[in-house]
Amino acid sequence: MEGMVTDLTLARENQNHFQEYLSNNPAASPGIDLTVTVLTTGFWPSYKSSDLCLPVEMCVEVFKEFYQTKTKHRKLTWIYSLGTCNINGKFDSKTIELILGTYQAAALLLFNSSDRLSYSEIKSQLNLADDDLVRLLQSLSCAKYKILIKEPSNRTVSSSDHFEFNSKFTDRMRRIRVPLPPVDERKKVVEDVDKDRRYAIDACIVRIMKSRKVLPHQQLVLECVEQLSRMFKPDFKAIKKRIEDLITRDYLERDKENPNLFKYLA
């Protein structure tokens, strides 16, 4: 917590120094109002980073150049999924300020130089994974605010779709926030935890059998539960399933005369 508070204080100082840097180097100005919060890996939750190719209008390299004048020993990793962008959408009826995520803004800015783009063209220009691209295109063409027109006109995004800027779009508000569809984070976390626990159970079983060589089923399960209970409460069915999996992978074998007796295979 102390590291997080210190990070936020230093981030504000960094931003002030960045503004001074731009004032003293007008040629370096990115042409947009850019605010960057630099945080220390380890103090904060980890997030997926991507090699998003930003359109020319979203120049962030100037901050990297500024930061390198302050330190040579730190590497910046851009977490675009946490960014927000305010851009002006110039529609036929009026200009509307759009509050978007970085991915959404990057996709929309591609239409400054193209009237119509296919799914594959957007993907190659942004260098995004399909999961991320489908989410952002759904938010822009299938949700409440249809900033893009999708062909064919249905509720799902596929790799054969084409997109155009919807110049006829209008809204009673002059400023709107376009949300991204939520990711089922809870499901993903549960899957990751289950995977980690499978590895932990496998390692525990192998460790016990390597030292004991031969053990009956009941004793192996009990020793496994005892060791793993320091980390989590293991499920007996999960342990049994992992034992069967290790048998198929030739880490263990059943005794031919007593099927409840397991032997370690070196």
Rank of each mutant, 00 (worst) to 15 (best):
K144P: 09
E151L: 14
L246S: 11
L8C: 06
S124F: 11
N260S: 11
Y103K: 03
Y199W: 13
P45E: 11
P45I: 07
S153P: 09
L136R: 01
E191D: 14
I96E: 02
K123P: 11
L126C: 01
S120H: 14
L220N: 04
N88F: 02
T69E: 11
K263D: 12
R116V: 10
E121S: 14
M209E: 02
S81Q: 09
K241G: 09
R177M: 05
Q19E: 08
F169T: 08
R177E: 07
S23D: 06
D192P: 08
K213D: 13
L110E: 01
N24R: 05
D171G: 11
R254E: 14
T37C: 04
I79N: 02
K72A: 10
N24F: 07
L108T: 04
L52N: 01
L222G: 03
R74S: 07
Y47D: 04
T156R: 07
D235A: 11
N14F: 11
L98Y: 02
R116L: 09
K241P: 10
L133H: 02
I176W: 09
L52H: 02
H73D: 09
I205Y: 12
S211G: 04
I205T: 15
C85S: 06
C59Y: 01
L222Y: 12
I201E: 06
K187L: 13
E57P: 01
R230S: 13
R175W: 05
Q125R: 12
Y264I: 03
N127H: 14
I87C: 02
S29K: 00
L265C: 13
V190W: 11
L148D: 01
P152K: 07
K195Y: 15
Y199T: 13
L128K: 05
K72L: 10
E65A: 13
R155S: 14
K187E: 15
F43V: 03
S81L: 05
T71I: 10
I243Q: 08
I79Y: 03
K233R: 12
P259H: 04
N127T: 14
S167Q: 05
R177W: 05
R74N: 08
D132L: 10
V221K: 12
E65T: 10
C224Q: 00
Q218N: 11
C142M: 07
E223F: 14
Q68G: 11
K48H: 10
F165P: 08
K168A: 05
S23T: 02
T35Q: 04
S29Y: 01
M209Y: 07
S153N: 14
V36W: 02
R212W: 12
I32C: 00
D184P: 15
N24I: 03
M173S: 14
G31S: 00
R172A: 15
R186H: 12
S50N: 07
H17C: 08
T41G: 07
P234L: 06
R175D: 07
P45N: 10
D250G: 00
D33Q: 03
L52S: 01
A28F: 04
S50Q: 08
G31C: 02
